[in-house]
């Protein structure tokens, strides 16, 4: 088992995500170069930045789809992917990682619905197989969730029979079915036709209103301004600036932020 020594760090258990100087590289390429970020409960953090700046990689680290090379990352005060024992870190096994991931829902740019399952089956699959929720009960919950995203009438449709916006709403319902305490959105509207963006943002807005803690990678500055509690601008693997979305968008301090915003606004 791989272990690594532990540094004594203060971990605030009230924070949903706490990231301290996270580094990540793919071979020679340093993708994350010391990301530090706190996400308090019931807040929406919008992560923006140019393509290739490491936004997706950072999201993927939060639910251990990638592992970090240095620094520390905690979700609900629990270190992501490692168990702390006798002042040492032990890599989690597959079950422990899976248990940790259940607390975190993820929504992808290209939806990644399971094409061989209906909308209902997509949403039900994880609660039934991973959590062992009885089928009848899971079905009730699924129908309620599909109603919440406005798609109860589409529950027997396959993804190929749904529009992009509908698919993404099913994908959100699927992530919510595991009753996560944190939702990660990786450019959820970037693959959509412009007229379908609104319906997905509406669902996300409602979710934020209901108190879900969210990290949203997005280029929708209107959404960030309206729903975001904070905006984090990333470029080339570092956080360039962050703050209240309305302030950062109206009055970006850093040159790179200004250059980026002038292109997307």
């Amino acid at each position: 088992m791989m272990t690594q020594p532990m540094s004594n760090e203060f971990v605030d258990p009230t924070l949903v995500v706490q990231s301290k100087d996270v580094w990540k590289s793919f071979g020679e390429l340093d993708v994350l170069k010391g990301i530090s970020l706190n996400v308090p409960e019931h807040t929406v953090v919008c992560l923006v930045g140019p393509s290739g700046s490491g936004k997706s990689t950072f999201l993927r680290c939060i639910n251990k789809l990638e592992s970090i090379d240095a620094g520390g990352l905690w979700v609900h005060g629990e270190r992501v992917g490692y168990i702390e024992r006798n002042n040492r870190l032990y890599e989690m096994n597959e079950q422990q990682i899976a248990r940790q991931r259940r607390e975190v829902g993820m929504v992808f740019q290209r939806f990644n619905l399971f094409p061989h399952m209906t909308a209902l089956q997509n949403v039900m699959a994880a609660p039934v197989t991973v959590k062992g929720v009885p089928k009848a009960e899971a079905r009730q919950q699924t129908i309620a969730l599909l109603e919440r995203v406005g798609l109860a009438d589409k529950m027997d449709s396959y993804p190929a029979q749904l529009s992009g916006g509908q698919q993404q709403r099913v994908a959100i319902a699927r992530a919510l079915a595991m009753q996560p305490r944190l939702m990660l959105f990786d450019e959820p509207t970037s693959a959509l036709d412009p007229e379908l963006v609104g319906e997905v943002l509406d669902v996300m807005r409602q979710l934020a209103h209901d108190g879900m803690t969210m990290i949203v990678v997005t280029h929708e500055m209107g959404f960030a301004r309206e729903v975001g509690d904070s905006l984090v601008f990333m470029d080339a693997g570092v956080v360039v600036e962050s703050g209240d979305p309305r302030e950062v968008l109206a009055n970006p301090q850093h040159e790179r932020t200004q250059a980026f915003l002038s292109k997307v606004l």
Binding site: L65, R101, R102, F108, F114, P115, H116, T129, M178
Partner: peptide, 24 residues
């Protein structure tokens, strides 16, 4: 992306193979 989505939902490697990857 299919493996990614099912991992993110907490499926084990074997379940991902049996329920998501093999049927497709």
């Amino acid at each position: 992306g299919q493996v990614e989505a099912s991992s993110a939902l907490g499926f084990s490697r074997l379940r991902t193979m049996r329920m998501i990857v093999l049927p497709q």
